[in-house]
Amino acid sequence: MSSLVHIAIDAMGGDSGPRLCISAALKFAELNPSVQLTLVGDRQQLTSIQSSLPHQIQIIPVDEQVKMTDRPSSALRHKRNSSMAVAVQMVADGKAHACVSAGNTGALMAFGLHLVGTMPGIERPAICKAVPTKTGSCWILDLGANLECHAENLRQFAVMGDALARVAGVTAPRVALLNVGIEAQKGKSLQQEAAHLLEGQDNLNFTGFIEAGDIYRGGADVVVCDGFTGNVLLKASEGVADLLRDSLKQAFVGHLGFKLAAWFARPVLKKWAGRYDPARLNGASLLGLKGIVVKSHGTTTEEGFLAALNVAYEQALNGIVDRIAAAVGRNNNTEMR
């Protein structure tokens, strides 16, 4: 495989299909001359634009796509030649450093598990992304890959989240378990058992339980939860961010004085949008696989898909898979002693 970062893109994933993926790929290639992109998608739609693409972007035409309504097990059995499967297979075969898809989350998880596989010491991958907080960023996992988990899954998620935070420059990440309260007796058996496992993990800075509201106050650097809880947290948070953004827009509409205030406030509003706009935070990794697979929101914008491509690019540059594998090995050895 070339030393250039090569990203495979499932061009048929998401609500907007290839149009959005193609335009985002063109912009990303322009911004990153050292990247190679492969668009995998509908034969008719992609071959019609092939001659107009820059040398950085190649295409692989296919005749199948995974629909949002497809069951993961059905997609795995019957759609092995789909755009999603072929993009993931490129990572499995070492032909691409990473792949990005805005398609069916369950199917992407299934293809990742079956084609790429998990690294030693990890039973299930977890969807992870960083969210902005009052003091910096917090990595939350799982955000929807595993709706049901057991305590050992959460321990493994904590190890992977800790490794990702360290790659980002956090020297001793504070790792916490999401719960309904911070008291030791709070929570269900899952939280209680996971806390017991993490308390015995010498290589982790486990700080105990955290409530959802304290995440955004900077109460932890890594927050661990099951995928059902994490997905609800993520979508509720994005809904609040959308509400705040739309409310700000409405506040400056109508009166001339408000419009003037909006003009003077543009630098502040632009800075705020750059940090809290959900589109710019798009792109969550399936940590624990032996390759980089990034999930984009299906309803994302072009800017959001660019953000997902950048997540894949940065993780490839930083060798995140090898770093997480090393961290998992160290922590598993500690646990077994």
Rank of each mutant, 00 (worst) to 15 (best):
M1N: 09
V5M: 07
D15R: 13
C21E: 08
I22N: 04
A29S: 12
P33D: 03
V35Q: 07
L37N: 05
R43V: 09
Q45K: 14
I49H: 13
I57S: 04
I59Y: 07
V62S: 10
V62R: 07
D63I: 04
V66G: 05
P72K: 15
S73V: 14
S73H: 11
H78Y: 12
H78C: 08
R80Q: 12
M84A: 12
V88G: 02
G94Y: 09
N104Q: 04
T105C: 11
L108R: 06
L108P: 06
F111R: 04
H114E: 02
G117V: 01
P120A: 12
P125S: 09
P125T: 09
P132N: 11
S137H: 15
W139P: 04
G144S: 08
G144H: 06
L147H: 03
E152Q: 14
N153L: 04
L154W: 00
D162H: 13
V170G: 10
A172N: 12
V175I: 11
A184I: 02
S189C: 04
Q192D: 00
Q192N: 11
E193H: 14
E199N: 15
N205C: 09
N205M: 02
F206L: 05
R217N: 09
V223T: 09
V223N: 05
V223P: 04
V224N: 01
D226T: 00
D226W: 14
G230T: 02
V240M: 09
D242L: 13
R245I: 08
K249F: 11
A251F: 13
H255K: 09
L260S: 13
A261N: 14
W263C: 03
R266I: 09
R266K: 15
K270S: 14
K271C: 12
G274N: 15
G274T: 01
P278Q: 13
R280W: 06
A284I: 02
L287M: 04
H297E: 07
H297K: 10
G298A: 12
G298P: 07
T299S: 14
T299W: 01
T301C: 15
E303N: 13
G304R: 05
L309Q: 07
V311M: 06
Y313W: 06
Y313F: 15
Q315R: 03
I320V: 10
I320R: 08
V321R: 00
I324Y: 04
A325G: 05
E335R: 15
